[in-house]
Design a binder for these strands. Structure first.
Length: 429
RNA sequence: GCCCUGGUAGUAUAGCCCGGUCUAAUAUGCUCGGCUGUCACCCGAGUGAGCGCGGGUUCAAAUCCCGCCCAGGGCGCCA
């Protein structure tokens, strides 16, 4: 089909072109008909006067919302049409009918609940809100890749099916693997380390799975994460990369997604660097200062993270120097206080969007830490092995894509920021 | 797994507290009719739910009670 996008057509005034898209709505005044036609690029009003050769065909077609139609004709300036331009067709082709009534209002005017929207996700993608969210997500991803590629990081592809569940922590999804049992990866952690000890600087965007029965607005059983791993780096080094990367991504969204931010009613503030580095101890103090009864050694709840955000009044900040009990075995202990590890979380708009650590690159220390955590170093032979043949110190982090999208778009439920969310109940679509 | 709130036309809400006036209302959609400049077009008519599912109380249940399922939020859980 010789077809141009609606946005392109608007730039090519007077030329005879074919546009195609969905009927957003029709305004039928009897002899005069207006059809609002929408494609992925934009919307235009198609105006059909009684003397138009297609006037009669159009009457017979009786177009309805979301019918797919192609028009051949030209874009002309119009002083009457509010958009300033309109499309005058000379022929029309009905490409496909939409069944009526449509399950949700694609124009976004009659609200639908998230659950209903997710049942009809393909239609929901046509609403201004959803389109804005996923375009912003796309920009975040593009900016992430560009930022790291420009700085010499190599994009790697770790496996999603893994053999071992012996890392501890979250429950994994099991699956049959020929005559063995395998698992869906809960983290590409080991693989990115294996890459970093040879490629030095790597990044990736991968899905991960957690079989936890959580039921919250910020958790999914399948999420995508954006990770880096870097050799010859400690936690502070990669925190700097993280904050710069965040600012880079936010600036890209602010620059390239002005219209989408407006649809969402979001004014995106780009934090100034360096970000505040709050220690875990300071965060505990702050919460206690306002009457929160948090114990040292406890993790922060979502409510507490939001509380810290409002107390600090900063868009984004780090919490660092965590108790070793709250972080995985491979987090490097602090020399000055072995109760603490070189680990950090990044809180953006009250939401934990990223966490990272400096990793233990010393096999003996790793074995000791595993034992201290009640794990058997024998089960981690392949993991430890990659540090036996010349492993530089290294550190890394991971950003949850859906969480970041939530914070940037202002969505209150993570499901809205995942195209096809997987949670405890939802497996379809 | 726990606590709170909710589930009513395709969609979103009202009604529920205080049972009967609900033959279930409103918006939007949809159907039909009218309209030559609309732009959330307008005007008129119509269509569409028996109130999440199951049970109970009552002369009478959308409304009260019990169980279950589902949704939203808070927690828990979550290297």
């Amino acid at each position: 089909m010789e077809r141009v996008s609606i946005e392109e057509a608007k730039r090519r005034l007077g030329e005879t072109l074919t546009i195609a898209g969905w009927v957003s709505r029709t305004r039928d005044l009897g002899k005069l008909k207006f059809i609002l036609l929408r494609d992925a690029s934009g919307e235009i009003q198609v105006t059909v006067k009684p003397d138009n050769p297609i006037a009669e065909t159009l009457e017979e077609l009786h177009l309805g919302r979301e019918d797919v139609v192609a028009f051949k004709g030209r874009v002309v300036e119009s002083r009457i049409a509010h958009a300033g331009v309109e499309f005058i067709p000379e022929s029309v082709e009905l490409i496909n009918r939409a069944k009526q009534p449509i399950p949700i209002d694609v124009s976004g005017r009659v609200k639908a609940e998230l659950d209903t929207r997710l049942d009809y996700r393909f239609l929901d993608f046509r609403t201004p809100r959803s389109r804005a969210i996923f375009r912003i997500q796309h920009t975040l991803l593009q900016a992430f890749r560009r930022f790291l590629s420009d700085r010499g990081y190599l994009e790697i592809q770790p496996p999603c099916i893994i053999a071992s569940a012996s890392e501890g922590g979250a429950e994994l999804f099991r699956l049959p693997y020929f005559d063995r049992t395998a698992y869906l990866a809960q983290s590409p952690q080991l693989y990115k380390q294996m890459c970093a000890v040879s490629f030095e600087k790597v990044f990736m965007v991968v899905p991960v799975w957690r079989a936890e029965k959580f039921d919250t607005p910020t958790h999914l059983n399948e999420v995508r994460q954006m990770d880096i791993e870097q050799a010859y780096a400690d936690d502070e080094d990669v925190m700097r990369v993280l904050e710069e990367c965040l600012v880079y991504m936010l600036e890209a969204v602010r620059r390239e997604r002005r219209e989408e931010l407006e649809i969402l009613g979001r004014e995106l503030e780009v934090p100034r660097l360096p970000l505040r580095r709050l220690t875990y101890d300071e965060a505990i103090e702050m919460l206690r200062g306002v009457g929160d009864e948090i114990e040292w050694g406890e993790d922060f709840t979502r409510t507490q993270e939001r509380k810290l955000w409002s107390l600090l009044g900063e868009e984004a900040f780090f919490i660092k120097d965590w108790p070793e009990t709250l972080k995985p075995f491979y987090a490097m202990p602090r020399e000055d206080d072995p109760r603490l590890v070189h680990a950090f979380d990044l809180i953006y708009r009250g939401l934990e969007i990223s966490s990272g650590t400096q990793r233990i690159h010393l096999p003996d220390l790793l074995r000791r830490r595993l034992r201290e955590k009640g794990l058997n170093p024998e089960n981690f032979k392949h993991y430890i092995e990659c540090f036996e043949y010349g492993a530089p110190p290294h550190a890394g982090w991971s950003i949850g894509l859906e969480r970041l999208t939530m914070a940037v778009t202002g969505a209150s439920n993570i499901r809205e920021c995942c195209m096809f969310p997987r949670d405890r109940e939802r497996l379809i679509p």
